[in-house]
Computed example of a mutant assay.
Amino acid sequence: MLRRRSHSSVGDKAPGDKELRKLLEAAGTVADHAALHPWRVIAIRGEARERVGRAIAEATGQDASSGIAKKPLRAPLLLAVVVSPRPSMKVPDWEQEATASGVAHALSLLLDEAGWGVMWRTGLYTRSGAVHRAHELAPHEHLLGWLYVGSKPEKKSGRRKPITAKKHLSSL
């Protein structure tokens, strides 16, 4: 974890479906109260990235003449992380969303460990109607964001400074 870096720019190669399934199987072992698996991941490649770009453009009010937000074209693979809450009397929706977030974070770490460049992107538009429709989400589902995945750039990222744990840890 101390070596992981976000890569805002990645190369043109991306993991194939077989490798992605293997990594997702590992990521799916995160803590999950009642084993509800309240999440799913959508792999977005090729022209499907343009569909996401058009939805983001619509959601952010970009000029209709441009028609497409360019960010989704920055990586050959976008992994849309979706919260798909399950009915439960003992596991509230916020906890199910935390599980989906855990899967996204674990998957980003696993992708990085496997040698891929990864950046988790979000934004207010992730919960917009246009983006919701573009991902064909069910009415009860919510998009957390996307993992942008591609080959790691040649240029190494700087070292990440560890946090001061004393500022974030307390006792009762």
Rank of each mutant, 00 (worst) to 15 (best):
L2V: 10
L2F: 15
L2T: 12
S6M: 02
S8R: 15
D12Q: 15
P15W: 04
E19L: 14
L20F: 08
L20N: 05
E25C: 10
A27S: 04
A27P: 02
T29Q: 11
D32W: 01
D32R: 00
W39F: 13
V41Y: 09
A43G: 08
R45S: 04
R51K: 13
E58P: 04
T60E: 15
G61R: 08
A64W: 12
S66C: 08
I68L: 14
P72F: 09
R74P: 00
P76H: 11
P76G: 10
A80E: 09
A80F: 09
V81W: 00
V82F: 06
R86P: 01
P87C: 05
S88H: 00
M89F: 11
K90Q: 12
W94A: 10
E95Y: 00
E97M: 07
E97H: 05
A98K: 03
A98G: 14
T99S: 06
V103Q: 02
V103E: 01
S108P: 04
S108C: 13
E113P: 06
G115D: 07
V118W: 04
R127H: 14
R127P: 08
G129A: 11
V131E: 10
H132Q: 07
H135C: 14
P139V: 12
P139A: 15
H142W: 12
L143I: 10
W146G: 04
Y148A: 01
S151M: 04
S151I: 01
E154W: 05
G158H: 06
R160Q: 09
K161Y: 11
K161E: 07
K161P: 08
P162H: 15
A165Y: 09
A165Q: 07
